[in-house]
Structure formats: C-alpha cells, structure tokens
Computed example of a mutant assay.
Amino acid sequence: MGIIRLPSMISNAKHFSKLQSLRNRNYTDVPKGYLAIYVGEFQKRRLVVPISFLEQPLFQDLLRRSEEEFGFDHSMGGLTIHCTEDAFMDLTSRLPIS
C-alpha cells in the first residue's frame, strides 16, 4: 500500500480549487501575475495559471513538447497546450505557486 502525504494532498486540493475559481472568471479578467492558456486535445478549455509556472522545468517540458508536435500558432489566439485536461491538472498540481 502506498504512502499518502497529507500536507501534499492539502496543498494540491488548494491549488486545484484556485485554478477552478480562476477558470470560471470572465475571459477578459486575467489577474496580474497570471496567464490565460487553452488546454485540451479536441475541445479546448481556457484556464488561468500563475506566470511562475513558466519558470518550472515540468511546465517548460510540457510547452516544449506541445510546440514540437503542434506549434503555437492556433486559431484560439492564445497559448494552446495539446494534452488532456486531466493530465494538465495533474502536472500543475505538482508545481509550486509563487
């Protein structure tokens, strides 16, 4: 049976809750220090994430792989990452918010 780290689970739950609330904001309402992106393989969902994610190696790797496979020039007009929303949420839940 695996080890469950309670502080990590609480931190991830808070992080997910913050991303969910930011996702539900008006499309033109991106707070200072955040970046709007589109995530999804087919149906794109707009998410708002902290700019500090751009400094994280895991996030940079995701961006690099998405750029290599799909490029960044998309009809959505914003940064688009081609991966499932679940995979994106899993990856970002492991990143520190600064």
Rank of each mutant, 00 (worst) to 15 (best):
G71Q: 07
G40N: 05
E69G: 10
T92G: 05
M9N: 12
A36P: 15
H15P: 09
S17T: 11
A36H: 03
N26K: 06
S11P: 10
P50A: 04
L6D: 10
L54E: 03
R23Y: 02
I37W: 03
K44Q: 04
L95S: 08
G2L: 07
I3L: 14
T84M: 14
F70K: 02
S8G: 04
V48L: 01
E68W: 07
M1W: 13
N12M: 13
L47W: 03
N26E: 10
L58I: 08
F59N: 01
K44E: 00
D73H: 05
S98W: 06
L47H: 06
Q56V: 02
S17K: 09
S75H: 13
G71N: 05
R65Y: 02
M1Q: 10
Q60C: 03
A87E: 11
F72W: 08
A13P: 08
V39I: 15
F53V: 00
V48P: 10
S52P: 01
F53N: 00
Q43R: 13
E69H: 13
S17C: 08
D61Q: 02
D73L: 11
I37D: 07
T92A: 09
I81K: 08
H15Q: 11
E67N: 07
G33E: 03
R45V: 05
E68M: 05
F16W: 05
L79C: 13
P7G: 08
L91W: 02
S75I: 14
H74P: 09
S93A: 13
L79M: 15
S8R: 09
G2E: 10
N24Y: 02
I37P: 10
R5I: 15
T84P: 14
N12Q: 10
A87V: 12
F59R: 00
G2N: 06
I51T: 02
I3W: 07
L35K: 10
R64Y: 11
R25V: 14
T28A: 08
R23G: 14
F16D: 09
K32Y: 13
S11L: 13
K18N: 03
F70I: 06
K14S: 09
G77M: 12
G71E: 12
E68R: 08
